[in-house]
């Protein structure tokens, strides 16, 4: 197990943001942390890479309690795409190559050529989409054992989005690295993630591998007899957790929607 999060708690100014978050990430997995805005995804990630100190719970990385020594093995793309003032692309490359011992210049150059990064230009003046791709390039070229990517496809056009998803997937499969992604883009996560946790209001509602989650749930149409634990409504159907052979197997997005939506139905008219 490469990352183990156990009963993580975090509050800001007395307001509880994470309330007992727990999940595990195995080596070589692409783990997706899925949830709506404000669910606690970014806070969880910030706790994992040591930006925030949790108020309770435990985080193990590489089988040990988190310590700053292991940060060289973790590369992070933060959600806000904040950049250092006046830093050009070259300045970033120099800084990252100093800080990451396994930095690979060739990988970065490939990104730079393909996406035509102007390394003399200040990164703060890049478009938001270009900043995202630039950060992906930095994290992948760092050759870190764990990549933490917060909303890695936000602001990307469909073609680049597709390429970036493939890069992320290949990095995990071919380089045998672990990737933790936070996102609410459930459609694209289905394509690449191997395991996931659904987080809402600071709590993990469910975590599993994608394959096991699909195998242990069924979607039952209205009128069919419900067998198993009712999770939530997905359109006109009901998502249940069961080992009985009823209904049909759900898609990944239906599992996520079932957990996030719960049993409440929205009827505006």
């Amino acid at each position: 197990m490469i990352v183990k999060v156990e009963n993580l708690q975090k509050s800001f100014c007395g307001k509880l943001v994470l309330n007992g978050v727990s999940f595990n990430v195995e080596e070589g997995e692409i783990f997706a942390l899925i949830g709506p805005n404000g669910a606690g995804k970014t806070t969880t990630l910030r706790c994992i890479y040591g930006d925030l100190s949790p108020n309770g719970g435990r985080i193990e990385v590489f089988g040990k309690d988190f310590s700053t020594k292991i940060k060289e093995r973790i590369a992070v793309m933060n959600e806000e795409r904040r950049t250092f003032r006046r830093f050009t692309g070259s300045d970033y490359v120099k800084m990252w190559s100093l800080l990451y011992p396994k930095w690979n210049d060739k990988i970065f150059s490939n990104f730079a050529l393909h996406y035509r990064f102007d390394l003399k230009q200040r990164v703060e003046t890049y478009s938001i989409g270009m900043k995202t791709v630039f950060y992906v390039a930095l994290t992948v070229a760092s050759n870190a054992d764990i990549l933490i990517l917060d909303e890695p496809t936000q602001h990307l056009d469909p073609l680049i989005r597709n390429e970036i998803l493939k890069v992320i997937s290949d990095y995990a499969v071919e380089e045998k690295k672990t990737i933790i992604i936070s996102s609410h883009e459930i459609y694209e996560l289905e394509e690449i993630s191997t395991s996931f946790a659904i987080i809402k209001e600071g709590k993990v509602l469910y975590f599993d591998t994608v394959d096991d989650a699909k195998a242990s749930h069924r979607l039952i149409s209205r009128g069919e007899r419900v067998q198993g634990e009712v999770i939530g409504l997905v359109g006109n159907d009901t998502l249940v957790k069961t080992d009985k052979d009823v209904g049909r197997f759900p898609k990944f997005k239906e599992i996520v929607l079932g957990y996030l939506g719960g049993r409440k139905e929205f009827i505006p008219f």
Binding site: R46, I74, V76, F84
Partner: peptide
């Protein structure tokens, strides 16, 4: 901007 530093290998 401390967030940028903390996302790098700095304690």
């Amino acid at each position: 901007r401390i967030k940028i530093m903390m996302s790098l290998p700095f304690s």
